[in-house]
Design a protein around this nucleic acid. Structure first.
Lengths: 129, 129
DNA sequence: AGAGGAATGATAATCATTATCATTATCAAT
DNA sequence: ATTGATAATGATAATGATTATCATTCCTCT
């Protein structure tokens, strides 16, 4: 079984090269621009594979799924509804309380997602739409 | 401007009548079964209106949006990935910590969503798929 | 070199949601 | 009650992200 193919490696490299939160199409386009064209279907499959292997992480937003590096400590996200900026934050206490709440209810949690929506610092000041 | 029409009232009544988390199609089907047929497009528009008015609340899951009563204290959700059961939980401390984290970063939060995924108590015991 | 199995890529299909548009209902003023 | 303006409805088409299909290509092992 092959697995980490050239295309998947290219996707992974691109994600690892920054702190961006990419969607599938952005990745396909960026790879094309870099001379390493990868079909959109392959990008989707590659992302599913990379995520299953724990090599990339993702957040499910309302409209699309976005992927980011996995080699960071666990964190959650604040999404600016004005400019799209995504900011990360980690909070050990919140994590611990979540787990406790799940345990109390007999839930075996396999994951969670906390997303806060609002206006980032810049947009709060600048009065963006 | 009219607003709370018969169809919207019917949607609202149905949602208020239980603790279920409905998606648009379930609502349309249930209304049809109850002799009060409402077109699917009207259900979507009605839900958007009702949510904008604060009359219903929603959670955005990976695949679809689900609506529930708004006349409950704020709470978050645990979703069972085996049976689909949705359980609610409220945690004032988590809420407060979230707000503090946002404030620290200059974020003006307008909302948030915390969803935990895993197996509910029954499915953990019963070994469902 | 050839076979078997997996990955790729172009494209069709799917599915939730939104847009379109003709028709109908509602409200206010006559 | 009739008209007119405005908004809502419902059937259906369109959209957009994601997944499935399938012929072709690529590995890897023999």
């Amino acid at each position: 079984m092959v697995k980490l193919t050239a295309q998947r490696q290219a996707i992974l490299d691109l994600i690892n090269a920054s702190n961006r939160h990419w969607d599938a199409e952005e990745l396909s386009r960026a790879l094309g621009d870099a001379g390493q064209a990868v079909g959109i279907a392959t990008v989707y499959r590659g992302l599913a594979f990379l995520e299953a292997e724990g090599l990339v992480a993702s957040i499910q937003l309302a409209d699309r799924k976005r992927y980011e590096r996995a080699d960071k400590a666990h964190h959650d996200h604040m999404v600016c509804t004005a400019c799209g900026h995504i900011e990360e934050f980690a909070h050990a206490t919140i994590e611990a309380l979540q787990e406790a709440a799940a345990r109390e209810r007999g839930f075996t949690i396999s994951g969670h997602q906390l997303v806060m929506f609002g206006r980032c610092a810049d947009c709060t000041k600048g009065n963006n739409t």
